[in-house]
Amino acid sequence: MNGTTIFTVCGILLFAIGLYGALAARPLLRRILAANIMGNGVFMVLVAGAYLPADGGAATGDPVAHALVLTGIVVAVSATALGLQLVCRLHELASGDREPDP
């Protein structure tokens, strides 16, 4: 049971928890958060998999996987922002009390 295994298992658990939340939760905000938790689980698995035990020198990571996760974080943030904006808009239109246009 080394560090990589622990992080991988935690990532998988995060993914499962997020999956359950995304499917079971009714409020849209909670679904967005759950999808984020899923994504974080995936990132965790990827980063844990990128860890390379020290071969001679210091321990390193696979830079391609790190770059993938970095890209993934930015895309996840963007998708979350878009989802939040759509939810905001939905509430605005549903509640009907839109602010008067200036």
């Binding site: 998999g49 990128a50 390379l52 390193t60 990571g61 696979d62 830079p63 391609v64």
Partner: peptide, 9 residues
């Protein structure tokens, strides 16, 4: 194998 692409990079 867990080598990934680190060597190539």
């Amino acid at each position: 194998s867990a080598a990934g692409l680190a060597t190539e990079v």
